[in-house]
Design a protein around this nucleic acid. Structure first.
Lengths: 234, 234, 234, 234
DNA sequence: GATGAATGAGCCTTCATTCAT
DNA sequence: AATGAATGAAGGCTCATTCAT
């Protein structure tokens, strides 16, 4: 009888594994297609083919195209939210900020279509935009603006702070979203490891210059000297 | 008989005017709808209703949805192309660069949906993306990179130049494309006159700092001190 | 200019006529198909083909299959409701009752599928059944029961009255609904003019016997002698 | 070894019992669902859920939805056929006729959905209708008509005989099929024991009046005095 | 030129049925 | 025998586009 139980256990385990595998395939395929064609432009059949499953099978996992879209967004967004929450409560130090940047960039590398989805939502003012904006981007941007307001930048034209804060969004998410454009324009692959590293360093340099108080260096005299000379790069 | 002719002339003039008016209405409506819902997500009926014309009438002006989409892109793109051409051959001076920036921004203000369309094309790797990238963004970016390579920035890590160049795209087009996101996130209207002005100044400051040789000022010692203190703002 | 107006008028009239024609075709086709296959079993394509219109055209007239179904029911039901209302307020005389019977039967002949729809609704306890039951059958049945209770039937077992009243439903609607069964069973066509006439007479005879007070004949001694001998038939 | 056999036997018996139980559950569930939604409108999953079995399991019992439908019809029809056969060859007496009526009514009570299925088949002219009509209703109706033609009704308008015969169908099967309609219309439950009894008496009274020769009473002078006064009711 | 009616193609979704365990 | 996963075949409905006036 334990045999039977065990066999059941094995069976169920195998099935669960297959289910998880199928679900991942579906999510990946959906992410790619949604990112390229948008929610409306995506045909469910297309996703199913890309995931190599029958359309009906897809509907065994998600009750509708919209639900699948939500799931894709959710998968891309949840880790970011968690990361942000960690940083918000963590020690405010330069290493920590750099760490967040690198982790976010690695996340965007892992889900290269996620940035596009975010942009599509923003542009089309989709129904997830409010959640997206309030739950994720607002705290991020406000935190940056808050840091800008600390002593180091004191006395600087505050009306520019929001615009400055958004630069971080443009340089991270925008880099991935516009990758196809830059690829065609500059004949380089923005998603290559080297270029991701460049972009990450760009953002870190920006942080160094604009949020100098995060480092212990109190002697920083030129707060916005954002990009130093070659030698300073690690 | 001349009366008739003249009457014909008048009639035709009136007709032509009405036609032009209708066409503009259609283009405007199409631009708005395409920007929000994308090419696939836009229903021709929706455009027709927004333009207050019958669907069949719309087809008297444009042979297909795709053609209408092209027309919208074309209308937004042509002035930009011309502006860029002027600058390319014009005198390389700071005022000229500033002038281009302001004109581009004003153009994007005038057609606030155009940036979104560009982004949608880029993200979805639409069929106009190659043209867009090669004909417009490539010369723009290469020009900026070229300027970065001039003496002022000599000795600096050249691998970052492309990334730096793209910042200009992000700060101009991206500002408009992501306006809905920033509006929801920051509770401000990125398209308000004041905020457009802020964003424009941001870009000009960047130019000042990163392309210092454009101004005659040879004494600039810290090329990337991109944003100076409040007082320096005009 | 009056020409133009008139032309417009003619045009619109012609179009309206075509529209009405198409709508009737659709309704007729729908009635037939719904009656045969039921609401769920009917494919919209089938209706469209039977009506010789494109499926999309059908949706220009009715927003959904359900709405079309309702329209069919409505068309069959409205005249009956009106007829019933007339009788309710009219003079209670035998001729009047006979008149109602004949009119109802003629109506059921005119829309031979209507009875089937009613039965299908009843059997499947469709969502229209409550309306149907309360708005139409209840007053009809109650009226009959009321008449039964008048002097002529006084002293008779009242618990049978409802069962007696329903006989009228069975003999009218049921005759049409079960026509296919009786046709196969008896090798006759229940919908032939002669058989409709027979059935009508049957009902009239029932009325004569069961509601004798409607005729002025007070001398009726055997109230339930429902079917008299051959000679009495006109 | 005999132990094993015996155990096998016990096991098989238990298995068989469980199988029979499952099959009954499936049939009952199917009958209910088919009656309400019709063949086309019924989803196999719905039946499976109502029977509390997996859909695939259901297919271990019946090879297709149609086959299951047939089985339901068959189960309802076979006892009726047998009953009819008995009467046909049995003694033609009033008690016997009454007996058949009561048994049929009891059967319809036992399978309250069966009447609905019959009506659905008739209305939709399903593929079982011919069998149904020829094998069951035709002999029944012809027998009744034959009785009507016997001396008692001699001289009466024969063209009404078929119509008269069908009344028995309407009052038995129709009573069950239209039960939902009458329930809504009259605020009574036609399937309550009392009302079933009423309806049965109605039919018996009709038989008494219309087929008087079945009783030995030759003195009956008014053949169609179908419903006598209260006192005559047992 | 303008418009209401009409249509072929296709999309999302569901369903009966089968497969694999 | 029983079940969860998988699938091919529609089915209801919409959409871009054309027709006829």
């Amino acid at each position: 009888m334990p045999d039977l139980k065990e066999e059941h256990g094995t069976r169920q385990a195998a099935q669960a594994e297959r289910t998880a595998f199928t679900e991942k395939r579906v999510l990946d395929a959906a992410a790619g297609t949604f990112a390229r064609r948008g929610l409306a432009g995506t045909r469910v059949r297309e996703i199913a083919e890309a995931a190599d499953v029958n359309v009906a099978t897809l509907y065994n996992y998600y009750p509708s195209k919209d639900a699948l879209y939500e799931a894709v967004l959710e998968r891309g967004l949840r880790p970011l939210t968690e990361k942000l929450a960690e940083f918000a409560v963590g020690s405010r130090e330069l290493e920590s900020a750099h760490q967040v940047v690198r982790e976010v960039m690695q996340h965007l590398v892992k889900y290269p279509n996620f940035s596009k989805l975010i942009y599509l939502e923003a542009i089309s003012e989709g129904e997830f935009l409010p959640t997206l904006a309030r739950k994720w981007f607002r705290p991020l941007l406000e935190q940056v603006i808050g840091e800008l307001k600390t002593d180091a930048m004191a006395g600087f034209d505050e009306s520019l702070f929001p615009a400055i804060a958004t630069i971080f969004v443009h340089l991270s998410f925008g880099h991935f979203a516009l990758a196809p454009l830059f690829k065609e324009s500059l004949d380089i692959d923005p998603l290559s490891e080297a270029n991701i590293e460049s972009q990450t360093r760009m953002i870190e340099l920006l942080i160094n210059q604009m949020l100098p108080h995060l480092s212990g260096a109190g002697e920083q005299t030129n707060p916005f000297n954002i990009i130093s000379t070659k030698q300073t790069n690690p």
